[in-house]
């Protein structure tokens, strides 16, 4: 009885595994490039947002400090990843896809 159940589970897992592969390949072919491009667009917009809100941190006061301070608590959690992305070495060959 247990063996049968085990067999069923294995078959199910195998089927699920094949489906996962097919879905992954299809997603990779059809959408992955679009998703990463959308993420990159969002990243550039976020850079702009951070630059506007925290510009005075860099010596470029875009927004009056009053508003910067109001937004600061929301922007602080993103500062580390923002710095990491902005400081990363970039090249023209990064822009192909």
């Amino acid at each position: 009885m247990f063996g049968k159940k085990k067999g069923e589970t294995e078959a199910g897992q195998e089927k699920k595994g094949l489906m996962t592969i097919l879905k992954g390949v299809l997603y990779g072919m059809a959408s992955h490039g679009n998703v990463t491009a959308a993420l990159r667009t969002r990243m550039h917009l976020e850079h702009l947002f951070m630059f506007i809100t925290l510009g005075d941190m860099l010596g470029i006061p875009v927004l009056p400090p009053y508003y910067s301070l109001r937004i600061l608590p929301y922007a602080v959690p993103n500062i580390e990843s923002w710095k990491q992305r902005v400081f990363r070495e970039r090249d023209f060959t990064d822009a192909i896809y």
């Binding site: 996962t20 299809l26 997603y27 059809a30």
Partner: peptide, 8 residues
């Protein structure tokens, strides 16, 4: 699998 599809 996703990366294979993307690369191809």
């Amino acid at each position: 699998y996703v990366l294979w599809g993307y690369q191809y």
